[in-house]
Design a protein around this nucleic acid. Structure first.
Length: 429
RNA sequence: GGAGACGUGGCCGAGCCAGGUUGAAGGCGCUUCCCUGCUAAGGAAGUAACGUCGCAAGGCGUUCGUGGGUUCAAAUCCCACCGUCUCCGCCA
């Protein structure tokens, strides 16, 4: 959520920032109008409330002295004031609700450093590593869904039979590889990040905190009977962990990581890029997360990016890093780096991590503050997140990249300790 | 799921059953100061967040789980919801 005070004092700057995303700014204007009215009404209401309080004290005193008849006159006055107060109060509350619901749908302001542009074509490629299109042998040009069938390590057909399209099932060495990736993803960040295993089904309020609701309700699975939501990413419960709390500056940065399943309806994406593991409704992911002070944020953003990229690099996968253009940054982010791996069999770049700096946008929604060591009062924290390891697409890239001439899969050295010494998945036969 | 008890400030804990000057006693913790060779002990003062108005000092308002209601006035009375605990039931 944006800062209403900033909207009041510098509406043009806010609108200019929002416009960089290609988003309409009409909600901002609407908010300004409603806010002006709400404050005028609020002041009037507060004055009346103060008067009622004064009168009530007098009434109390009069009753004590046994002068009830004098009190009844004051009571009548106060009753009238009370009616007025109620009307004003209702109006102010109504305005407040309107303002909040408008504000909840406005995205974060992109950082001034984020590249201009509205589509993914405007993203800036920061670096490419380990990628040489000419280097791939024909046996590496087999898509993972075919490899999965051939080796019995990925069973999409049966998964679809039990759950519908865009679900997958890992089997045998494939399932073990998945588990290895998760442990690898967690262990390499254990030096600085606390491991958390949060609930994966959460309340509406929790989804609002990160910005996934109300705007993106269609993208999430909703358990209607209990009004609970299946999380699309561990970012949701991790943000909520300290919702409503005031942290000590000494506790910052607070680094957390979590492995969870993630659930996404992927509304509107049926049919495109959905084969195999390219896009699935349920997947495993290790998420890296941090709360910090505004001063620490930039360094933290770099740290998470480096950790996420390091995990990919150490698996020996070709990848590139993109600095997302304003229009391609998700709602809560101010600046986002994407990491994409190259899958030679599927012949495309696959997004495996989105490292976002959300400034105080989520903190404001979830009401997470810190008490500065120097000075007084409280300040909103900054929140940052990024996938430390998103399983399906990394799994796909490993299997395609590692495929050898005989059809066996060479497994990255970094994973060997997590595979009980297994160094390759044998060819079919 | 059934029955009961409970939900107060950073923490503990009064107040609620007899509604009134209670942002809320007392204690702990914390901060500053005094005393002291140092430490301990002791003494004094201070110690919430948010909104709004104001250059500021400060004023006003909101918040005693959450939301409604009764009343001139609600931490205190009534209702609903959420949560915690105990007992029963069920269960990996």
């Amino acid at each position: 959520m944006l800062d209403i005070k900033l909207i009041r004092t510098d509406p043009d700057a806010v609108k200019a920032a929002i416009a960089r995303r290609g988003e309409s700014t009409s909600a901002i204007d609407e908010v300004i109008g409603l806010d002006t009215r709400m404050r005028a009404i609020g002041t009037e209401r507060d004055d009346i409330r103060a008067e009622v309080k004064q009168i009530s004290k007098q009434v109390g005193a009069l009753h004590k002295e046994g002068r009830a008849d004098e009190a009844s006159e004051l009571q009548a006055t106060s009753r009238e004031l009370g009616d007025k107060e109620k009307a004003l109060s209702d109006e102010a509350d109504e305005l407040h609700v309107q303002i909040r619901s408008l504000l909840l749908r406005v995205s974060n302001m992109p950082s001034p450093d984020a590249p201009d542009g509205l589509t993914e074509d405007d993203n800036v490629e920061l670096r490419v590593e380990g990628f040489d299109p000419a280097s791939y042998a024909p046996h590496q040009r087999v898509p993972h869904w075919d490899i999965g069938d051939e080796l019995g390590i990925l069973d999409v057909d049966r998964a679809v039979r039990m759950s519908g399209s865009m679900f997958a099932m890992y089997r045998g060495a494939g399932a073990r590889l998945l588990r290895a990736l998760i442990n690898y993803g967690l262990d390499r960040n254990r030096d600085a990040f606390e491991e958390v295993r949060p609930p994966t089904v959460v309340k509406t309020e929790t989804m609002i905190g990160t910005g996934h609701l109300p705007k993106f309700a269609d993208d999430a699975y909703h358990l209607e009977r209990d009004d609970l939501w299946a999380i699309p990413t561990a970012e949701v419960p991790l943000t909520s962990m300290v919702a409503g709390e005031i942290l000590d500056e000494g506790d910052l940065p607070l680094r957390l990581m979590a492995h969870t399943s993630c659930y996404r309806r992927e509304a509107g994406s049926a049919g495109k890029d959905t084969r195999g593991l390219l896009r699935v409704h349920e997947f495993d992911k290790v998420e890296l997360y941090a709360f910090c002070t505004p001063d620490q944020a930039e360094a933290m953003h770099t740290e998470i990016l480096e950790r996420a990229e390091g995990a990919i690099r150490d698996l020996g996968l070709a990848h590139r890093v993109l600095d997302l253009a304003c229009g391609d940054i998700s709602g809560a982010g101010a600046r986002t780096y994407d990491i994409e791996v190259y899958a030679p069999g599927a012949e495309r770049w696959l997004e495996v991590s989105s490292v976002s700096w959300c400034t105080d946008y989520q903190a404001r929604r979830a009401n997470i503050r810190f008490r500065p060591a120097e000075g007084k009062g409280t300040e909103f924290v900054h929140s940052l997140n990024g996938s430390g390891l998103a399983v399906p697409r990394v799994w796909a890239a490993i299997v395609e990249t590692g495929r050898q001439a005989d059809g066996s899969i060479r497994l990255p050295e970094a994973l060997h300790p997590y595979l009980g010494g297994m160094t390759e998945i044998p060819a079919a036969g």
